[in-house]
């Protein structure tokens, strides 16, 4: 009970600091802008495609797959670029300012601090997702065959899980240094590599390559974006999140180990 309260205090404080600095505004604006850009480009392409007279009669393209799905895939990559900015400050700046000493000598646990920061960053990201998804509601009015809502929900879940992985890993990197720029750059490199590993996956890939590519963060989005919840993907994302938080907790706590 008091644990939840402490986590809440940390979330509150982080949000206050997000909005006292340009970080929250820049990431929200960049995300929403890019969401809008991708959305209108893909919508344009979609409209052109569906208007093109076909020799096989009128085409019936799926809004879910050809529009929303495409946009979500692009936004996963945008998240990869934006999230380092959201997480880099979280521990590095506390260390640089010495405020980590305030947190560490207050009657709250390291776990509460880590979870508070995690939820604060994830909350900001959730706001980003919601503001992006508002774009989709525009289509509802005009679409002749209405899109399904289920792939949209699982798509949002996919983005959220991916973002949570980014936050957990970014938080860990931030806890390793007292320089937030270093944390940001390292986080970005980490995300890029985890993304690039996913490219190894191809129909021709061997067993080993397939196994390695399993680590690729974006590879587990596909089914969710199509509206299929598979246990494998959920377990994958949850384990990355827990692993990231575990590492962060160890790193924050490590200065208190008896040498």
């Amino acid at each position: 009970m008091s644990s939840l309260r402490n986590i809440g205090y940390i979330v509150q404080k982080e949000w206050r600091q997000y909005f006292a600095s340009p970080i929250a505004y820049v990431s929200l604006c960049a995300w929403t802008l890019l969401f809008g850009v991708f959305y209108s480009l893909i919508l344009n392409w979609f409209v052109t495609l569906s208007m093109r007279p076909s020799q096989y009669g009128p085409v019936n393209l799926s809004l879910n797959e050809m529009l929303f799905g495409q946009v979500l895939r692009q936004m996963a990559v945008v998240a990869l670029f934006i999230m380092p900015m959201v997480t880099m400050r979280l521990f590095a700046e506390e260390k640089r300012q010495g405020t980590i000493e305030l947190l560490a000598t207050s009657p709250i646990t390291d776990l509460e601090i880590v979870l508070g920061k995690f939820l604060a960053a994830l909350g900001l990201y959730a706001v980003m997702i919601v503001s992006g998804f508002l774009n989709f509601t525009l289509v509802w009015g005009w679409a002749t065959n209405k899109p399904e809502w289920k792939p949209l929900v699982t798509g949002a879940l996919a983005l959220l899980l991916l973002g949570a992985c980014f936050v957990a890993l970014g938080l860990f990197v931030s806890s390793l240094t007292r320089n937030q720029i270093v944390a940001g750059v390292l986080t970005f490199c980490l995300f890029l590599s985890l993304w690039a590993i996913g490219w190894l996956d191809s129909p021709m890939a061997g067993k080993f390559t397939k196994a390695v590519s399993y680590v690729g963060l974006t590879n587990h989005l596909e089914d969710l974006i199509k509206g299929v919840i598979s246990l494998k993907d959920i377990v994958y994302y949850l384990s990355v999140i827990v692993f990231g938080l575990f590492l962060t907790h160890q790193s924050v706590e490590s200065h208190r180990w008896r040498a």
Partner: peptide
């Protein structure tokens, strides 16, 4: 920690608050 108040050498302050 409940019973101790502490100021480190440089006070741990958040400049943006």
């Amino acid at each position: 920690k409940r019973r101790v108040g502490y100021i480190p050498e440089t006070p741990p302050l958040y400049p943006d608050m």
